[in-house]
């Protein structure tokens, strides 16, 4: 599959301070890429570089087939960006706001009007089209800003915290919309602090703190950091079963907490029957056997927690 975004050693310094260091990554076309990191990690700086808003100090990138710094105007025409702040003109109506940006994105007046109408309908803002944006709720403003990023039908869309500060219903609408964009074949570069959201939406994830700490699909990140595991819930105290579990060659670690035994093992799918037999032979009465699931938050905190 072709790469929508490719960076090599992308670096940005501000007055000697390194904001982004040697970022090398590639994002496949038509996928959702999650860019996770704490506040001040350099995510917005990265997005600004990739959207040709600021120049890198070092390194290079190809975005939507355009090399950074060669024809940045063409690059900007090929991408859409939802900035951290919606940045809308409060006195202008929703339609006037979008029409202005449609024209700046080189749409001819008739097409601009058609696109504005299309996205106002899609994001359920058509009924409020002629009202000043200053009267809109946060959710409506965010939806309007997303519409603005899509008016010119870009192949790549950068979404910086698209659901931040939205109520659950509005956040759900935005997430569904992002899924719709992926279904249309667009590439989404999503920065977010909302880890369950990233888990739900993203095909691949990069965890970033000034430099790229880890990259992969959510499942790969979980497996890579925590390995596979099984949880066994028993009747009575599980602590007495820990030595039994540890004596098994395929168990790498075992811990007990009340009636719960948590085990790290090499290949749960094939080893779980042997594990259950051994525990039962040791007198365990088993209530449940479950797959050990690590959340993306566990992965994130493991990678970033110790650094921030």
């Amino acid at each position: 599959m072709a790469h929508a975004i490719e960076t090599h050693g992308l670096t940005r310094r501000f007055d000697g301070r390194v904001a982004v260091e040697g970022l090398s990554l590639s994002v496949e076309a038509g996928t959702v890429f999650g860019f996770l990191g704490p506040n001040g990690a350099g995510k917005t700086t990265t997005v600004r570089m990739l959207a040709a808003l600021i120049a890198p100090s070092d390194g290079d990138a190809i975005v939507a087939g355009h090399a950074l710094g060669v024809d940045d105007t063409a690059l900007r025409r090929a991408v859409g960006i939802l900035t951290e702040q919606p940045g809308l003109y409060d006195r202008l109506s929703a339609r006037q706001n979008l029409r202005y940006f449609a024209r700046l994105y080189d749409l001819e007046p008739a097409r601009a009007d058609a696109q504005v109408e299309r996205y106002l309908h899609l994001l359920e803002l058509w009924d409020r089209r002629d009202e000043p944006v200053g009267t809109f709720s946060k959710g409506m403003r965010q939806k309007l800003a997303i519409a603005r990023a899509l008016l010119h039908e870009p192949a790549i869309v950068f979404l910086d915290e698209p659901t931040a500060a939205l109520d659950p219903e509005a956040a759900r609408t935005v997430r569904d919309f992002v899924k719709g964009l992926r279904a249309e074949g667009r590439t989404i570069f999503l920065t977010t602090h909302n880890l369950p959201e990233a888990d739900e939406l993203c095909d691949s994830i990069g965890i970033f703190q000034r430099r790229l700490l880890r990259m992969g699909s959510p499942a790969e990140l979980r497996a890579g950091l925590f390995g596979a595991g099984t949880i066994v819930r028993v009747v009575g105290d599980a602590a007495r079963l820990v030595p039994v579990a540890r004596s098994l060659p395929f168990v790498r670690d075992a811990r007990a907490d009340g009636e719960t035994l948590t085990l790290q093992l090499d290949d749960p799918d094939s080893r779980n029957p042997d594990l259950v037999d051994a525990l039962r032979a040791a007198g365990a009465r088993i209530r449940y056997v479950e797959r050990l699931q690590h959340s993306l938050e566990d992965v994130y905190l493991r990678l970033v927690g110790g650094r921030s």
């Binding site: 959207a51 808003l53 105007t73 063409a74 900007r76 025409r77 960006i81 900035t83 702040q85 940045g87 809308l88 003109y89 409060d90 940006f101 700046l104 994105y105 080189d106 800003a145 603005r148």
Partner: peptide, 14 residues
């Protein structure tokens, strides 16, 4: 002040 410059600068305008 209204932070509207960044979205404008993100367009192909010079």
């Amino acid at each position: 002040r209204e932070r509207t410059l960044e979205p404008v600068l993100a367009t192909p305008i010079r």
